[in-house]
Structures are given as C-alpha cells and as structure tokens.
Nucleic acid binder design. Structure first.
Lengths: 231, 231
DNA sequence: GTCTATAGAATGATAGAC
DNA sequence: GTCTATCATTCTATAGAC
C-alpha cells in the first residue's frame, strides 16, 4: 500500500532515450512500444491514481499482454516513476519562457501562456503530477528539494528585483508563483469540473484563448503591470 | 477497479445525523465512533487515494478492528462517499460569506478569507475533493451538475452585475471564480510542495496571514478593485 | 522478444461466536 | 455491538514454452 523502496531513481532529467532517439542500445520498435505503454499509463494513472490503475488495464489500453508490459517496465513503480518524470521535463520547458524576457510583463505573460498550453496539451500528465504531490511526493520528493527548489529560489529573486526596481507592486514572489501554478494547472487537473460548469462542453480554441487572456489580465494587473493590448 | 454502482446516494446535503445530534435513532457513542472512522478515512483517502487507502489501515488509524468499520460503513464506497460529501458542506459554508457583502471588494475578500481558512483547517478534505474531481467525479458528478452549477451560475451573475455597473474590470466571472478556487485550494492540495519550498517548514500564523493578504491583493487589484489597507 | 498460465500476496467483505 | 477467523476476489509479478 505504501510504495516504499522508491528511491531507485535519483536522476533529475531522465528519459533521453525515449524522448529522442539518442540511445543506440534501444531499437526504434522498443522505444515505440515503451511510448505506447507510457501514454496508456499516463492516462490510467491520471484517471485512477497509482493504486487504482492496474497493470492489466494499462496493458490492455496499450494493446499488449500484461507480461509484455512487465518485460519493458519491471515493476509498476518503475513505470509510474517514468510517467511522473516525463512531466518534469515538460514542466521545465515552460520555465525557459520565463527567462527569455527581461521586462516583468512579458516574462510573466509568456510564462502563463506556456503553462496554459501545457495544461491543454498534457492534462493527464498534470493530473499525475498533482496526484503525486498531493500524496506527499513519495517518488519525486528528491526532485522537489533540488531542481524545483533551485528554480523557485532563482525566480523569486528575479521577481524581487523587479519589485525593488519599482517595476511592479510589493508582494511575496512566492505567492505570485503559486497563483500562476495553481490557476494554470486548474484547467488541466479540474478539467472535469470546468467542463461540467461549461454545460458539459470541452473548451474549444476560443474558450482556451479567453481563459488565458483573463488569467493574464488578472494576474498582471494584480501585481501592477499593464497587459499587452489584445494579445 | 472502476467504482461503478456509485449512484447510491443522490442527496445534496447529507450527514445531519453526524454533524449534530439531531438523529435520535443513533446514540452518541455510535456517532462518536463514526466520526473517528470518518476522520481516519479522510486522512487515508487524502494521502493514498480511494484505492490506495485500505479499510484495514483506516480501521487501524481509527483504533478499531476492520470488521467493526464494516459494521458502521457497509462498504468502502459508502465510507468514501460520506467523506466526500462532508467536504461539500464545508465548502458551502464558504459560499455564504460571498453573499453577506454587497460591494465586490468586501464580498471577494471575505470569500477568499474563508476559503483560505478552510484550506488551513481541512487540508485532507480538500485533497479528497481534488482527487475525486481529478478522477472524473465518479461519486459526486450529480452534485457538480446541480448544486455547484447553480451556485456558480448565480455568482457569475452577481459578478457580471458588478462589471455592468462599472464597479470592476471586464473579465469573464467564471475565470475569476476558478482563480479563487485554484489559488486558495493550492495551499491545501499542494501543501507538501509549499512546505518543501518553505524549507520544509509548515506555514505558521504569519505565513498564512501573508499568503492570504497577497492572494487578496493580487486578485482584487487584478479585477480593478482596491484592497482594504491593512486587512 | 512475446505471451499463457499461474504463483503468491493483499484486500474487501462476512460468518458466526461472544 | 464487538471482533476473530476466513472466504472470495483481485492484483503484481514471474516461470517457462514458443
């Protein structure tokens, strides 16, 4: 029940061999199958949680026998761990957009844009991540304490410098970051609730655009920045 | 695996007999034991999810044999359902604070205050709720479509009227509500991440106050409202 | 590498004594 | 009402044939 023995992976950025074709030791077929399993696993873990998702159903969804799944991923935990770490890499992508802008309004706006895009493109990944953190981060605690912590500290410093320069209002940068994370991820993690309140309809292009615009508008104005007119 | 047959409870506000002592058919001892089980269950469901939490461990935590738990709650699903519905009632409490103020700034500020208090007082309940919604709301779908939907529609109308009167900026009320929900609940659902980034320390009184103040500041200013000076 | 059959362990629920 | 002993089921993981 407890998912002990989870310290079997201490890496920060993994999954090179799956993301690109750089690992010559693994054939293309092998990677293709692993990808199919990972996609199925992400979906099932997102919908049912770690214990709720069974290797049998993941294998069914991936279109292979269960024993074959265990050939590629020795344990359910190893598979889960891989799924969670894949989200990290995607999450880190968004972090970059924060840095490529020097004025606060552009930096925050493009960071929010990117985070909203990820919520739309990878809702299942976002859910798995939320689940993992909500349950005390048994698998990725190490990552929280290192990579995420370092990233957060450095961005807090950037935001603080903007405040010190009088470019934006006085707030604790931490809470601004949490608000951006919480709000953008809400459209992925709570998509079921959002759609129910949207008359059971999934967000279309316009709805996503409107949501992104309003989120940026409220947050940017909320810290004393002006929003780009109709972007 | 799927938690079918979950339509066994179609009520909107339940649990009167547990919350107060109004049900004479149930003794005080009985209610006390049920409460102990519910507290334990909330904790375990929050930490491990529906499938991850076992009736054995819930019983252990409540200090009773497993068979006794099944005497009070015939099935694991019935127990889970009760836990989820308890959160509804708490959540609805906060809704009232929205209505007791007529100007937008006071209404939104006190709603955010209340939601932050709930995140602090009932983090496990918030997590169980988040889990339930993330997994497609198999148990409380009915509630989402009725009570929550009605509440949301009526409050959207209130916010829209404020906008129409020129009291606040033009935004889609829906997204303002989502931002409030997401941000306030983040401090409960992601408390593990928040604490990790807080040097492993739990938020103390000052930290909660600071978080609440910044959340109110950003959101109120974000929609063009001014914030009460040092409240 | 693939897959059937099955071992081995854990879990939800209950029978039945007290 | 309480609790021990146990059943029936389900799940992860693997052995071993192909």
């Amino acid at each position: 029940m407890k998912r002990q023995n989870v310290q079997f992976l201490n890496v920060k950025r993994v999954r090179k061999s799956v993301a690109d074709g750089s690992n010559f030791k693994q054939s293309a077929t092998r990677n293709k199958k692993k990808e199919a399993i990972l996609v199925a696993a992400e979906k099932m873990f997102a919908d049912y949680g770690f214990r709720g998702a069974t290797t049998q159903v993941i294998a069914d969804l991936a279109g292979i026998p269960k024993a074959n799944l265990h050939y590629y991923f020795p344990t359910k935990e190893a598979l889960y761990s891989q799924v969670v770490q894949n989200i990290f890499d995607i999450w880190l992508e968004a972090a970059d957009s924060f840095d490529q802008n020097q004025d606060p309004a552009s930096a925050l706006a493009s960071y929010i844009d990117k985070k909203m895009e990820i919520s739309r493109a990878h809702p299942n990944g976002s859910k798995v991540w939320a689940n993992e953190v909500m349950h005390g981060a048994p698998i990725i605690q190490d990552y929280l304490e290192t990579t995420l912590k370092e990233w957060t500290i450095s961005r807090e410093a950037v935001i603080q410098s903007w405040i010190d320069e009088g470019l934006m209002d006085q707030i604790d940068p931490k809470h601004l970051l949490y608000m951006i994370w919480a709000t953008t991820q809400h459209y992925a993690d709570f998509v079921h609730q959002v759609e129910t309140l949207n008359d059971g309809q999934a967000f279309d292009d316009d709805a996503w655009e409107a949501a992104t615009r309003d989120v940026k508008k409220i947050i940017l104005r909320g810290v004393g920045l002006s929003v780009g007119d109709d972007k």
